[in-house]
Amino acid sequence: MTDIFVDAKGLACPMPIVRAKKAIDSLQSGQIMELHTTDKGSMNDLQAWVRQTNHELIEAKEDNGVFKFIVKKG
């Protein structure tokens, strides 16, 4: 059900949201992006970014130091 997967593990700010932006730009409205990061600020960053850019955060969780997000394009 994921239309694009973005691996931003190991990347520092601002790369996770830059990668997320690039990936979501390639999707159609309603399609799903899955994003993994390890930057400690990304839990807050991604949520803020999704709110401001009118996408929808379906899921955000931490799993063994990896932050996993599922975002639906608005």
């Binding site: 700010c13 601002p14 949201i17 830059v18 997320a20 932006k21 970014w49 401001q52 850019t53």
Partner: peptide
């Protein structure tokens, strides 16, 4: 430049 890139990613 980090802020500029972040803002660009914000659209």
């Amino acid at each position: 430049f980090i802020i500029a890139n972040g803002a660009a990613a914000y659209g």
